[in-house]
Amino acid sequence: MSEVVKKATRESYGEALAELADKYENLYVFDADLAAATKTGIFKKKYPERFFDCGIAEANMMGVAAGMAATGKIPFASTFAMFAAGRAYEIVRNTIGYPHLNVKIGATHAGISVGEDGATHQCNEDIALMRTIPGMTIINPADDVEAKAAVEAAILHEGPVYMRFGRLAAPVFNNKETYKFELGKGIKLTDGDDIAIIATGLMVSEALTAAEELKKDGINARVINIHTIKPIDKEIILKAAEDTGLLLTVEEHSVIGGLGSAVCDVVSESLPTRVIKIGVNDEFGHSGPAVDLLKEFGLSSENIVKTAKEALGK
C-alpha cells in the first residue's frame, strides 16, 4: 500500500456536515467549545446560523439537542468521546435515549490515539457505555469514505446515533466510487477460512495489513469490518464463526464492553466459538505520540499477526 492517503475521521465528519447541509436543511450542529478540534468548525464557517456553541457544558448541550430534536429538527451534538459518552452519559441515557429522540452524537478524539493529552482524554470505554442504552445506534467508521457515508446514514436513520471519530490521520482504503454504507451490516474485506479478523474503526486498516502478512505464511484470514457496532451484524459474525472456528476481534477500545464483547455476545448464544480480543486491556492509557501508543498497546498489524499465528499454533 504505497502512496496511501491518510485523513482523520474527525476531519471527514466536519466536512460531511458541511457537504450535507444543503441537502438536509433540518440539520443543525452543536459543539462545546471544541469546534476547531472536532472539525465542526468547517460547518460553522459555511453555515454560522445553523451552528451553536454551547460553551464548555456538555451535559447541557446534550439536553439542548434533545429539546431541539423534540421539535423535529436534526441536531448533531459534538465533543470529545470522553465528554459525550462519559460526562454526559446520563443525559444521553435519560433525555436522548429514553425518549428515543433523533439526536446524532458526533464524538471525536476517541481511543488511545488521542496521544499526548494522555489518559484523561483517551476514551476507551465509550462504545461500552453507549451499547447499554436501549435503541442507541453506534457507528465507528474506519476511514474517510466510510465516515462521510456514515454521517449521511445517521441523518437518514430515525433515532439516536452515536458516531465515533478519531484524531489520528487514518489510511483511506475504501473506494469512494464503489463504497456503499449499509447501517447494521458488516463488510467482508478479504476471503479466508483459517481465521476471521473482525475489526472496527482505526483497526480495520491494521487488520488488512495483517491479513497480507499472514497470507505470506500461507494463512488465509477473513477480514471483516464492523462499522455499526449496534445493532451488530449477527449474520456475518456467525458465518465467520462457522467457516473459520476462530475469531480475532481488534478495536481501539477497552476489551471490556466493546466490539469484542459484542462479538462474544453473538457467538456465545448461537455458536460457541473461540474469540481472542485485541484491544486496550483493563488499564488507563498515558501520554505519547499516537503511533507509538498504538504499537505499545498492541493495536497494530504486527500484534494481530503475532496473535493470529499463536492462536493457530504456527
Binding site: G67, N94, P99
Partner: peptide, 28 residues
C-alpha cells in the same frame, strides 16, 4: 414520558428538563 399524550419531554432525572426546554426554545 414523552410517549404519553400531552407530555412534551421525558424528565425526572433532575436538572435535565431545563436543558431540553432551552433546545425547544432555541428551535422556536
Amino acid at each position: 414520558c414523552i410517549h404519553i399524550p400531552g407530555v412534551d419531554m421525558s424528565s425526572g432525572s433532575l436538572g435535565q428538563g431545563i436543558s431540553a426546554a432551552c433546545g425547544m426554545a432555541l428551535s422556536g
